[in-house]
C-alpha cells in the first residue's frame, strides 16, 4: 500500500511541471473564453461588457456563415486520413528501400517549413483553371470540363484539401520515420523468411507496430484542421463566397476583424466541443486497432 502511494506520488511528480504550465496557459484562458461566450464583449478593450445569457448561442443557430463554415470544416477533415495514409507509405519506402535516404528525407520534410505565401502562390499557378498544369493534364486525359478548382465554389474546397494533405504530409512522414526505427528488423525478416510478401509485412507487422503513432497523427490532424487556417487565408481567404471558410477562420475574423469577442468565444466553444467529441470518438475507438 505504501509502495503504491509512493508510486502515485512519483507519478504526480513527473507530470507536475507540465500540469502547472498547462493550467496557466491553456486551462485558464479556456475558462476565460467560456465566460466571454455569455457576454457581449465587443471592441478591443471590452468597455461596457455585459452578460447576455444565451443570446450568442441563439445567434449561432441563425448564422448562415457559421453553418457553412461548420460543414466545410467536416469536408476539410478528409485531408487528414489521406495525409496520414500517404505519409505512412512514403515513410516506409524512405525507411528501407531507397538510396540517398538522408537527402530524400530532408526533401520530404521541406514542404512543412515553407512559408504559406510561397505555397499558396505556386499552388494557385498549378490550379489555374485554363492554363494550370493540373487542368492541362486532365484535359489531355479526355476530361472536357475540368473543375475550376479555386475559382469555383464547387471545387475550391477540394483544391484546399489537396494542398493541405500535401502540406502536412511532411510532418506525418517525419513522425512515422522515427516510429519505424523502433520496428524490430528481426521480426520483419522472420516474416519474410516465412514467405510473407513485402506489403503483407508492412500491413500486418509494421502498421500495427506504429498504430499508437497513427492514432496520434489522426488526433493531431483533426485538431489542427479545426485550429489552423494559414494556408486557406493565404490562398482563398475563405472564398469564393464562403466555400472555403472554416470555423477557425470565422472565429478569427469575428474576433479580430469585427472585434465581437463575446460571439467569437461562443463559436470557439462550439468548435472546441466538436473537436473534442471527434477526438473522444477516436480515443474510444482505438481499442479496435491500436496496439500498445
Amino acid at each position: 500500500m505504501k509502495w503504491m502511494k509512493r508510486q502515485q506520488m512519483i507519478g504526480y511528480l513527473f507530470i507536475l511541471p507540465s500540469i502547472i504550465g498547462v493550467s496557466i496557459f491553456f486551462l485558464f484562458p479556456l475558462l476565460f473564453s467560456l465566460v466571454l461566450s455569455f457576454t457581449n464583449w465587443s471592441g478591443p478593450s471590452g468597455r461596457g461588457t455585459e452578460f447576455i445569457g444565451m443570446e450568442n448561442f441563439q445567434r449561432i443557430l441563425g448564422d448562415e456563415v457559421f453553418r457553412q463554415a461548420f460543414f466545410n470544416n467536416f469536408l476539410y477533415l478528409i485531408h487528414v486520413p489521406i495525409a496520414v495514409f500517404l505519409g505512412f507509405l512514403v515513410a516506409v519506402f524512405l525507411n528501407r528501400s531507397v538510396y540517398m535516404k538522408n537527402a530524400l528525407r530532408a526533401v520530404f520534410f521541406l514542404p512543412y517549413l515553407i512559408s504559406p505565401i510561397a505555397i499558396g502562390f505556386v499552388w494557385m499557378l498549378l490550379f489555374h483553371p485554363s492554363e494550370g498544369p493540373i487542368n492541362v493534364m486532365l484535359m489531355s486525359l479526355g476530361v472536357d470540363n475540368p473543375p475550376g478548382w479555386l475559382s469555383s465554389t464547387g471545387s475550391s474546397m477540394y483544391a484546399i484539401i489537396i494542398m493541405s494533405a500535401w502540406q502536412i504530409m511532411g510532418f506525418n512522414i517525419i513522425i512515422y520515420l522515427a516510429a519505424l526505427q523502433g520496428v524490430p528488423r528481426e521480426l520483419e525478416e522472420a516474416c519474410s523468411m516465412d514467405g510473407a510478401k513485402k506489403w503483407q509485412i508492412t500491413r500486418y507487422v509494421t502498421f500495427p507496430f506504429v498504430s499508437p503513432i497513427t492514432l496520434f497523427l489522426l488526433i493531431i490532424g483533426v485538431a489542427n484542421a479545426f485550429k489552423n487556417f494559414g494556408l486557406i487565408q493565404a490562398v482563398t481567404g475563405g472564398g469564393p463566397g464562403n466555400s472555403t471558410t472554416i470555423l477557425p477562420l470565422y472565429v478569427y475574423q469575428t474576433a479580430f476583424r469585427y472585434y465581437e469577442l463575446g460571439y467569437a468565444s461562443t463559436i470557439a466553444i462550439i468548435l472546441f466541443l466538436v473537436i473534442f467529441a471527434i477526438t473522444l470518438l477516436q480515443w474510444l475507438g482505438q481499442k479496435k486497432w491500436v496496439h500498445y
Partner: peptide, 28 residues
C-alpha cells in the same frame, strides 16, 4: 452528400482495420 462522404470515408477506414484485426493479433 459531402458530410455523408466524410462519414463513409471514416467508416471504410474503420472496417479495414476491423477486418484485419485478427491477423494483426496473430502477428503481434
Amino acid at each position: 452528400f459531402q458530410i455523408f462522404g466524410v462519414y463513409f470515408f471514416f467508416f471504410v477506414l474503420e472496417k479495414l482495420f476491423l477486418l484485419s484485426s485478427r491477423k494483426d493479433l496473430y502477428f503481434f
